[in-house]
Every structure is written in C-alpha cells, then in structure tokens.
C-alpha cells in the first residue's frame, strides 16, 4: 500500500498523538484483510504532533465509538482517489459496550451478559452516566482506553 494515496477508504486524521493504537483496537482494524497504515507523531500545524490512520477499504466505521475516544478527529472518506466527504465528530449521546461501569454495586457487575450502556449527561465536561446506576464516567479520563 502506498500510504500517500488510497483509492477507496478512509483517512482518520487529527488523532491525538499516541491514540492511534487505541482507535485501531476499538474499531477492530486488526481483523481487516485490507491494508491499514498507522502514522504516529506526524507533524501538525494545529496540534504539534498527531497520529493518522489510513484504511484502504470502505468498511463500516462506528463513528460513535470513534467520537467517544477522540471527538476531535476528522474522518476523510476517499472514493476513486478523491476526497468525497469530510466528517467532523462529536461526543455521541449514547454508547453501548464502550465504557464499563466501575460501580461495584451496579447490576452490570454481577450479570455479565448485560451490555454496559452510558448516556452523555454533560456535554461541556464530557460526563457520561451508566443507564442502570447513574455512576459517572468522565470522557477525558478514558481509563478504559
């Protein structure tokens, strides 16, 4: 794969430096057969340093997961060697199976098959709350990642 250009796929840009592997894991990119390039610590005028991921196929990307991990990333959609769309992400209102509730008294701690679900309750501060016990999880501490 020539990492300078892809025919049909994505360029996930403006990833905070050091976060590329987290996104790689959470999007399940290790399971893809197509080419995936990770560029770490690229120079950026806006960010100083940034990571970039290039995916050489138009796969389904869970933008909610991506938005939760790093709402500042840009997803460039490439079709026929040209930029077809530029997606700017925001914090998702609702995330499933992304954050794990850490409250030992929550029902999710004893019933393993319940999907951990969180809703965004404070957009400014990036606070999510478990839909079962209302325990807070702050987006910027992202200990899970």
């Amino acid at each position: 794969m020539n990492i300078d250009g892809i025919q049909n796929g994505y360029v996930i840009d403006h990833i905070r430096a050091g976060k590329a592997m987290t996104i790689y894991r959470y999007l399940g990119l290790d399971k893809l057969d197509c080419s995936v390039a990770i560029i770490k610590n690229a120079k950026s005028r806006r960010m100083g340093r940034k990571d970039i991921i290039k995916i050489d196929e138009l796969i389904d990307i869970d933008l909610d997961v991506l938005g939760y991990i790093d709402p500042d990333v840009t997803v460039n959609v490439i079709r026929e060697n040209a930029l077809a769309e530029k997606k700017h992400l925001t914090l998702p209102e609702h995330v499933m199976a992304v954050i794990r509730c850490k409250n030992p008294r929550c029902i999710t701690q004893v019933e393993q098959e319940i999907t951990h679900e969180f809703v965004l309750t404070d957009k400014e501060r990036g606070v999510y709350r478990c839909i079962y016990c209302e325990t807070a999880h702050k987006n910027d501490d992202r200990a899970d990642f």
Binding site: N103, R105, C106, I107, T108, Q109, V110, E111, I114, C130, I131, Y132, C133, E134
Partner: peptide
Amino acid sequence: HPKEGAPTV
C-alpha cells in the same frame, strides 16, 4: 434488589 439498576433491567 441489592444491585443498582436491577429494576431497570
């Protein structure tokens, strides 16, 4: 229920 959120489930 002793676990929080059990009635929601």
